[in-house]
């Protein structure tokens, strides 16, 4: 062992050939050095053991890919290339017979493959426009309330014992039925994270560049891709996959605090909120632009309770509770004074 590097980080070990050979047991050449190093560095025992485990790793059984399959694919590949680029007359002559052989093999392969992967299926898709809400019953009896401007997708048929998966863009409240048989997981997938539950009720909002999850009751596991976190009732977590971090984490400690899922009762409730958040919410639900001309309104905090009705009904209530003047400029643009 000539290399006298200090091994302070696990990668110092992983990058050292002598260590790797010793850890895998390939050679006993430097074993005395490593045994001594181990004794001399009792504070690094855990790091050493982790490094050995990382070098040795796990054994897996590789899925068998028949040479027949590879050959068939290669035949197809070659004939596709020949069809595109061939100027060679000799190759031209052989081409059709090769395609015929390849095609017949391909048909046989496809039948086999089709049988193996027959469970891959069609999707059911629901979406709401601005200012529109919808309640959807899922194949397992769970219910989903879909908020405005949102999209929900799931497989048409759910097989028993299989993970129940739905995909969400926008916002929805989930009331998930616990399966009697056992621990059949329910998964909401957004562009930021996966929400995994057994049976529980929670709100998921996947808008902009983050996803916010609010847990009403039960227990929830969030797979954030690089790590996993758990939620308790009342927890609100916002995660951004792009920033790779939790951008907001808080707890709704009392029923007096407006619930992030109040919209499902047909009411948008906001307390001690600034005008920016409230108007943002209106823009989000109705797909309009609220253009603020009087910036002074940002100095105050407001309480609002808005029914989830047509915008024409909501605007006067908003004006009254916030003490503002809202003028309709066009279908999509409002001035706030």
């Amino acid at each position: 062992m000539k290399n006298k590097t200090a091994f302070n980080q696990i990668e110092d070990l992983l990058e050292n050939d002598s260590f790797v050979q010793w850890a895998t047991g390939e050679t006993a050449r430097d074993s005395i050095f490593w045994e001594q190093w181990k004794k001399a560095n009792p504070d690094k025992t855990e790091m050493l053991e982790d490094a050995i485990a990382m070098v040795k790793g796990l054994s897996f059984k590789l899925k068998d890919i028949s040479s027949n399959q590879v050959d068939t694919a290669l035949h197809q590949l070659n004939s596709r290339i020949d069809t595109n680029t061939s100027t060679n007359s000799v190759r031209q002559r052989f081409r059709w017979s090769r395609i015929a052989i390849a095609a017949s093999i391909a048909i046989l392969t496809c039948i086999g493959v089709g049988l193996l992967y027959a469970d891959y299926q069609d999707m059911e898709s629901y979406s709401t426009a601005y200012g529109e809400w919808q309640t959807i019953e899922l194949p397992d009896g769970s219910t989903v309330k879909l908020n405005a401007d949102s999209e929900l997708e799931f497989a048409k048929n759910w097989n028993e014992g299989e993970v129940r998966e739905v995909w969400l863009k926008g916002e929805a409240f989930f009331d998930v039925v616990k399966m009697l048989d056992q621990d059949t997981e329910f998964k909401v997938i957004t562009s930021d994270l996966d929400v995994e539950v057994l049976g529980t009720s929670f709100n998921v909002k996947a808008r902009g560049e983050k996803t916010e999850v609010y847990l009403e009751e039960g227990k929830v596991k969030l797979d954030l891709g690089s790590r996993i976190t758990y939620m308790d009732p009342g927890d609100v977590i916002s995660y951004s996959a792009r920033q790779e971090k939790i951008v907001d984490r808080r707890r709704r400690t009392s029923a007096a605090i407006p619930s992030p899922s109040s919209w499902k009762e047909g009411v948008i409730e906001m307390r001690d909120s600034d005008a920016f958040d409230i108007l943002n919410k209106i823009e989000e639900i109705y797909g309009v632009t609220m253009s603020v001309r009087n910036k002074d309104i940002y100095d105050d905090l407001y309480q609002v309770q808005l029914p989830m009705k047509e915008l024409d009904i909501v605007i006067p209530i908003l004006e009254k509770s916030m003490g503002l003047k809202i003028t309709k400029q066009s279908d999509k643009i409002f001035f706030v004074d």
Partner: peptide, 13 residues
Amino acid sequence: STRIKQQAFRTQQ
């Protein structure tokens, strides 16, 4: 409109 499309819903993961 197939299930597999959804696997890539989150492109990086």
